[in-house]
């Protein structure tokens, strides 16, 4: 361990001495320098312990101005808190909300249904939510959802998923110190061999989505949202 660190330090020193630049614009580092810096950052972050999850309390929420959404991606299981940065009505169904993570990833929701992400890499570029929102009427239902997914080669793939919405009945969930009475809904979508299943918990009193677990993309998987504070 120690030896690897020393080697890195020496290479780093060599590069620091060898590579510098300047100019009226922001001239970028040389290619070799960039590769090295990137690898160094990676190396440094190895072996750091995963942060402990935070138990959110009412007091903590009260200190926080604005609305708060908790987000936990399946693939890391780690928790982040999102900030509402925009709220819009447009020609589409529902109200659009843009939520931003601490590392500047944006999640775009229409009445709580995920219709886009920005900054992830394997993003959901855009999506229809009409069929899903129509299924929240308590009757179930479903229909086609066109979802545009980013691909690794910088293009996007438009996929028409066939979705079914199932009413799972009433469910009381715990959000921080509140017990919230909800309708629970399950949406199963399929395209060829790919399927995903989203779950939604919609507050009975307000019709607002309080909790969900939604699929983003093949490369990112699922993410769980919980609306902690309105």
């Amino acid at each position: 361990m120690m030896r690897r660190r020393t080697v890195f330090a020496l290479i780093g020193a060599a590069f620091a001495l060898a590579a510098c630049s300047g100019g009226s614009g922001q001239k970028q580092d040389s290619t070799l320098t960039t590769l090295f810096t990137s690898a160094k950052a990676v190396y440094d972050s190895w072996g750091q312990p995963a942060p402990q999850p935070v138990v959110v309390t009412r007091a903590l929420l009260d200190q926080t101005p604005g609305q708060v959404m908790q987000a936990i991606p399946d693939r890391t299981g780690l928790q982040d808190f999102l900030r509402l940065i925009a709220q819009r009505r447009d020609d589409g169904p529902g109200v659009v909300e843009v939520w931003q993570s601490s590392d500047n990833i944006q999640f775009i929701l229409r009445d709580g249904v995920l219709v886009g992400t920005k900054g992830l890499g394997p993003d959901m570029r855009s999506a229809q939510a009409g069929a899903t929102l129509a299924g929240f009427d308590g009757q179930g239902g479903g229909g086609a959802r066109l979802i545009t997914l980013a691909r690794g080669n910088d293009s996007a793939q438009r996929v028409e998923f066939a979705c079914d919405m199932t009413q799972m009945g009433r469910d009381t969930i715990q959000i921080v110190d509140q017990r919230v009475s909800t309708y629970r809904m399950q949406e199963t979508c399929a395209y060829g061999g790919t399927t995903f299943t989203n779950e939604y918990w919609v507050e009975t009193s307000s019709g607002r989505m309080r909790k969900s677990r939604q699929w983003v993309s093949p490369g990112f998987g699922y993410i769980a949202f919980e609306r902690l504070k309105n």
Partner: peptide, 9 residues
């Protein structure tokens, strides 16, 4: 507008 670099190659 100018830019310069000293770097390994």
């Amino acid at each position: 507008d100018y830019a310069w670099t000293i770097a390994p190659y």
